[in-house]
Write a protein that binds this DNA or RNA. Structure first.
Length: 479
RNA sequence: CGGGGUGUGGCGCAAUCUGGUAGCGCGCUUGCAUGGGGUGCAAGAGGCUCCGGGUUCAAAUCCCGGCACCCCGACCA
């Protein structure tokens, strides 16, 4: 472990991020370019995200399945936009068992094609619809510029694939999934994401419409945290996914796909972290409560450790994820260490507390003395659960206030430039134009993030072109 | 894909310009003290200096060739 100080997120957010990922033991560098090793502390955050999503998917009737890692190269070529979108970043397997393969396999960058092929065989009747499948998998995209969790050459995600009888059902499901993503981000990760529709130039390769949840990170940049695509009938036509409707007519299905990845772990780090390190939202925190025993003599140690163990047992019984830090370090060292790792609550228990039947609690979301209080030992499990809920709510409130303070309405291009310059999301009337969007991106570095689903009434003049429009869009620099 | 940087004990670095026994901090091990906000002292363990070739009495250091990773930018669901 290095001894140098953590970079300040205010001064160099990027350096801070890179440093904290490794310092907090979320991940390690691997021998493979652009690929990280996800260490237990980072993995548990992903597991939390995963189980929160999986519950919600299953409640919608989605079933999990698993498809091969390798996809025949020809599959990727079938959908024109899809090929164009993905071919530059494909990893291809050309040799197997020492022999050149007759047809190379690509390592999946996403599975629309191979799942589409399967759907074409499985779906026959309108009675089979909707057909709802999800898989938890790893994918590979040969990205040129990688960052731990945010963009890695190999990453883990879930990809959902569904088939529906008509446009409206597919559209409704696409939006239902978007709600699931937003609900998970807000309630579990305490990140107040904005649900929105992507512009045509930001749309998924081959999709009719792409919806997104956009989060604001600590440096006021945007991060696309998950996407849900209505694929229309494009993939159904290409892979021949057809069904017989109630009047015995052959119809192409309407399909959707949707994904959320380990990037979300990066979002949690960047949305909540501060100059002391990570701040984990309690619901996703691998360790919710760390207990630091304090003692001098052996006699004290015996008494304290006995009390600490009883405390841990009570918390565990109350379904609080508690950890005892019995390492042979100074208490001060441990305090800083766990603050860096973002543990929401620290309990200090020493001889004085054993005597008085109390314990000192410190909140990670409130700095210094302000966050410290002495709790009675009675009903400690219930007290801590309440405290964790309070911290979760406070983190969401803080992030929401931060987001709202940094979404700024713009009425002109100059105003947008200023917002982009000083950081934040610029919101303004926008008359859809790929050309103008490109121009803004080249001149300011900001991209069209989305048309928020939550739109104002009426119409206004586009901040860029002046044309009348009924839609408001968000622009920001993004990861 | 462009630009920059770096490869030396587990980690972070020095020594490279000016060739001559590879050194420091952190971490690790052991002991004693210490312990309610990053402890102190002492003694230890640990190195084909990225790879290949060349120059030289002698290469971490100079020369040639390769490889790898990181950072910044463009690109990107």
């Amino acid at each position: 472990m290095s001894a140098h100080a953590l970079p300040s997120p205010a001064e160099d957010f990027s350096a801070w991020y890179n440093d904290i990922v490794y310092r907090a033991d979320m991940a390690a560098q691997s021998p493979v370019r652009g690929c990280i090793i996800i260490k237990p502390y980072g993995w548990e955050v992903w597991e939390g995200i995963k189980s929160a999503l999986d519950r919600r998917f299953k409640a919608l009737g989605v079933q999990n399945a698993y498809f091969p890692l390798l996809i025949p190269e020809s599959y990727m070529r079938r959908e024109a936009e899809h090929v164009e979108g993905f071919s530059p970043e494909l990893a291809v397997v050309t040799v197997g068992g020492g022999k050149a393969l007759e047809e190379p396999y690509v390592i999946r960058p996403t599975s629309e094609t191979i799942i589409g092929e399967a759907f074409s065989q499985w779906i026959q009747s309108y009675r089979d619809l909707p057909f709802l499948i999800n898989q938890w998998a790893n994918v590979v995209r040969w990205e040129l510029r990688t960052r731990p969790f945010l963009r890695t050459a190999e990453f883990l995600w879930q990809e959902g694939h569904t088939a529906h009888a008509d446009h409206d059902d597919a559209e409704a499901f696409t939006l239902q999934i978007l709600d699931v993503y937003a609900d998970m981000a807000i309630r579990e990760a305490a990140i107040p994401v904005i649900k929105g529709l992507k512009s045509d130039s930001e749309r998924f390769a081959g999709a009719l419409r792409t919806y997104t949840i956009e989060g604001m990170m600590g440096d006021k940049k945007a991060l696309q945290c998950g996407t849900s695509h209505n694929l229309g009938q494009n993939f159904a036509r290409v892979f021949d996914i057809q069904y017989l409707d109630a009047s015995n007519q052959r119809q192409y299905c309407w399909t959707t796909s949707w994904g959320l990845s380990t990037r979300m772990v990066g979002a949690v780090i960047m949305a909540h972290g501060d100059e002391k390190g990570l701040r984990m939202p309690p619901r996703l925190a691998p360790i919710q409560v760390v207990i630091v025993p304090i003692f001098k003599t052996d006699d004290e140690k015996t008494a304290v450790m006995e009390s600490v163990e009883a405390l841990r047992a009570e918390l565990t019984a109350a379904e609080v994820r508690a950890h005892v830090d019995a390492r042979d370090y100074q208490p001060g060292y441990k305090f800083n260490d766990w603050e860096m790792r973002g543990v929401p609550v620290r309990l200090e228990l020493g001889p004085r507390d054993v005597q008085s039947g109390s314990v000192v609690a410190a909140r990670r979301d409130q700095p210094g003395k302000e966050g410290k209080r002495t709790l009675r030992r009675e009903q400690i499990g219930a007290q801590i659960k309440l405290l964790l809920d309070e911290i979760q709510a406070n983190m969401l409130a803080l992030a929401t206030a931060f987001r709202d303070a940094n979404i700024i309405d713009v009425a002109s291009y100059d105003e947008l430039r200023q917002v982009v310059e000083s950081g934040g999301f610029a919101r303004g009337w926008w008359a859809d134009s790929a050309v103008n969007e490109r121009q803004i991106k080249e001149e300011t570095g900001a991209t069209h993030r989305c048309y928020p689903l939550d739109q104002p009434d009426g119409e206004g003049a586009c901040f860029y072109s002046g044309a009348k429009t009924r839609r408001v869009a968000l622009f920001a620099k993004a990861y």
